[in-house]
Every structure is written in C-alpha cells, then in structure tokens.
Amino acid sequence: MQLIAVNRKLDQGPRRAVTLASFALPILLWALISYVPFLWHPQVEITQPGSVSYFSEGLLVDREIFEREYAKASDNETALPEGKPANPVYLPAPHEVAVAFVTAFTTEPQRRSEMWLHESLWSSIQVIFWGFVLSSIIGIPLGILAGTYDFFSRLFEPFIEFFRYLPAPAFGALAVAVLGIYQAPKIAIIFIGTFFQQVLVVANTTRKLDPSLLEAAQTLGAKNRSMLFRVVVPGILPDLYRDVRILLGWAWTYLIVAELIGTSSGITWFITQQARYKNFDNVFAAIIMIGILGLTIDLLLAWLGRRLFPWQKESK
C-alpha cells in the first residue's frame, strides 16, 4: 500500500503508527543526542581534575578548553585530567526529565513564598479559564452581531482592528495599577490578548455562513430576530466551536506574560525560576506538562464537538 498519496486517507493501522511516530521521532532524536557520546556532546564533564588547578569533579568545560589543558599537562608531564563527553546543562537527557516529571511535584519550594508545582499549575489553569471565559462571554456575541449586521460591523470592527495591534503585554503595568497585584491583572492580560482577535475571528466565521441559507429562511418568512437565533447562530455553531478551540490555544501563549506581572506565580513563573536555578530537567518537565495539558483539553473539546454536532458530515 502506498503511504504517501494525494487525496487518500490512511488505513486505521498505518494511521495509528504514524500518529505514534509523530511523538516517537522527536523523542528518538532527543535520546540519540543525549545517549550516543559522539553525537554533538560539545562539552566535557570532568571526572578527574588531575593537575589543572581550576578543574573540579563534575565541572562542565568546552571540549577545546579540556583538550588544551590536556595537551599542556601531557607536555609538562604532570597528572592528566580525565573527563567524559557531555551535553550542555540546558539539554538534560530524557530519563532525567522523566524523573523530574515526578520529583517536580514532590520537591518542596525553595523559598516559603513560592508555590508547589501543582499549585502553580492550578493557578495557571484558573487564570486561563477566567480570562478566556470572560473574553468569550463578551467577544462571541459581539462577533456574531458584527458578522450578521453591517451596522455593528462598522461600529465595532475599525476600533478593534486598531486595538488588536497593541501588544497585550504593554498593558501589564496598567492592569496592575487598576486591578492590583494578584490574579486579576493576569486575567486581564489573557482577556486583552484573546478578546480582540476573538471578535474579528467570530465575525468572519459568521460572515462565511452560506448566504443561500439566509435567503431560504427569508422566503420561509423568517424576520430579523429569528434569522439571528434560528439560522445564524445554529448555522455557525460548529465553526464557532472550532474557532474557540483555536483561540484557547492562543490564550495559552499570553500566559507567560500574564504570570510575570504583579506577584509572579503559575507554571510559567515556575519555569523561569527553575531556569534561574539551572534545573533544566524541571524546566523541560514543566514545558511538557503544559503541552500535555493543552493537548488533553483540545482532544476533550474535539470529542465533545463530535457529540454536540451530529449533523456535521465531518467534524474534526
């Protein structure tokens, strides 16, 4: 069977295998670089300092420096340093990250004011949730209005077009000044980052509704109000749902900025903090956690979407 063919779906078996490979290949690449000593490994981890005064056990030095000191020591016939090839500290091996995945949850915070990892995660989820829900409650209706009525399109969209070019992070200081230092300004940043895009995206989706459905409804006697609630809204619902899924992904990208303002908190703050302590295994573990969380939520929403819209030929 041909695996790579235009306009043809893979069978169940190969399809699963390829999906698995999509995750397995990057992990394999990572493992190769980590465990095969002659691949990359630009540094040397000192196991025996020998006669080199500034070497100590466990120190990471660039390979050229090690080779220079080694040559010097052998010329002078002093004790030779020993070491093994190593990767830089910012690239931990897969097993280290796997361990960190567990220990990150069980490690006590370094300072009393800092949070446990699960608390950080929970705080992040809350910020995203409230920012996104508030944005959707206002943004989706405005978008539908703008997409349905030219009047509202003219009224809302020019200003929103202008506003969406202002970077959300620029409002950080203002948000703190107005809303204090705790969760509120963070939610505001997610809101600002999502809302303006959301109105425009939803308006566009609404405009894409097949106009012949609107005409059919008109010839069946539908007037303004029921056109909106009985034709436009149900007609765009599956596309609207897909938009919301995509926009939720965008909301996550504003999280890192949101969590750096006011009192720092949340999963991205945890990442910044761990990077400062050079615990890159924790950094990787946390990044992967965000990925897993995002993917899980998206898969859940996709599954729910198929239940919600049985009338769709194909729901993705």
């Binding site: 012949s212 459905l213 005409e215 010839t219 069946l220 034709v231 007609g235 619902l237 769709q312």
Partner: peptide
Amino acid sequence: PERGMVFQGYTLFPW
C-alpha cells in the same frame, strides 16, 4: 412565505 422558493442547491438547514 406567500412566495415559497426552492433553490437549485437545496438550501436545507443542515442542523
């Protein structure tokens, strides 16, 4: 509604 219309593209409400 006193002038019913049938279109070539069916235009049934898919939902």
